[in-house]
Amino acid sequence: MSLTGLFLITFLTLHLAINLLTLVDKDLFNEASHFMATNIGIQAMQYVLALGFIMHIGLGIVLTLQNKKARPEKYAFNKPSANSQLSSRSMIYTGLLVLVFLVLHLKDYFVELKFGDMNGFNNDYDLVVALFGMWQYTVIYVLAFIALGIHLNHGFQSAFQSLGANHSRYTPTIKKLSAIYCVVVAVGFSAIAIVHFVNS
């Protein structure tokens, strides 16, 4: 989970950086989007990325099933809030929410850009912005980003622990970075959706 998770985090950071360009300049975003769609290295990485997603999701489901099996009888009275964060206990749920969103997101953008007729638009920017004209889309996207933020709140710092990296000097910094990163991702992506909705 940790290795695939960290890999997906690097992808997410790049994705956010490029999307933020839509708030800066239309042509700049189109240029970046064009580069991503045509560069051979990026195109090759697409398959690695797909594999990363499949492994992360597959491992997450197997992990959850194994862990459910380890406690067949539940406690009649349990108080998990006394000792752990909700975000750490709900990874499978926030993960599955993000997965549902991912299917919708791929259908609307990835498939349209790569295989479709771009919904009739002649540049990437207009296709991206047009969908946020519908309030339903904006709401779904913002909710998905909140789920993603909660997922990352645990995931980012937990990945280091899983890899055996826990150190009195570095771990507090990693935890702070994790807390900042999940907010940056959730707020950053949400801001893009909301700004385009308001401007539409």
Partner: peptide
């Protein structure tokens, strides 16, 4: 033995 996997919730350390 059939113990589960660690998902780093940290509950063990607290309890």
């Amino acid at each position: 033995e059939g113990f589960g996997n660690c998902t780093n919730t940290g509950a063990c350390e607290v309890e």
